[in-house]
């Protein structure tokens, strides 16, 4: 099946089995490796991307549903050398350890800040539900608050 969509601002057309998870199209065909495979069942959030601005777990999203959509991955979160406020905050708080789950968390956070620009701790608990085995949650919480502040300043 042929599917067309916009990814990180670039038009793409792929010809694959309609039920292929979007994650594998992004990673194996479009060679964007920042979106990670963790579980394949939308349980860990390592593959979180944005589809039309909504945070979506790409491992459980069949490519056929992406027709005509606008997709953003971690590679499209920064613009050139300019980091997204979430990435900037992640740098300033030195959040990543192994780093594998971090793109998913940053994408989930970027989507959260579009909906709730100044999230409370409760908002963070309720909305950021990805899994990090290095357990960098303590710094991530600080980075989410910092990202909100950076975003507010640059507005």
């Amino acid at each position: 099946m042929e599917v067309s969509f916009l990814i990180n601002g670039v038009s793409q057309r792929v010809d694959v089995d309609a039920d292929t998870p979007l994650l594998w199209v992004i990673r194996d065909i479009l060679d964007l490796k920042g979106t990670k495979f963790g579980c394949g069942k939308a349980a860990c959030g390592a593959c979180t991307i944005h589809i039309d601005g909504e945070a979506v777990r790409a491992c459980a999203y069949a490519v056929k549903f992406a027709e005509g959509k606008s997709i953003t991955t971690i590679e499209g979160l920064s613009v050139g050398d300019k980091l997204h406020p979430v990435q900037q905050a992640w740098m300033e708080e030195v959040v990543p350890q192994c780093g594998y789950c971090q793109p998913g968390f940053m994408m989930a956070t970027a989507a959260l800040l579009e909906k709730i620009p100044q999230p409370t701790d409760q908002d963070i608990d309720d909305n950021i539900v990805n899994v990090c085995r290095c357990a960098t949650y303590y710094r991530m919480r600080k980075a989410i608050h910092r990202a909100a502040a950076i975003k507010q300043e640059t507005r």
Binding site: D31, G34, K36
Partner: peptide, 21 residues
Amino acid sequence: VPRVDLRDKVLGAPIFGMDAT
């Protein structure tokens, strides 16, 4: 000192075994 792998990890660079091709 900030981690030397910080920027790669924040950008989602393809550095892991599963990213290898």
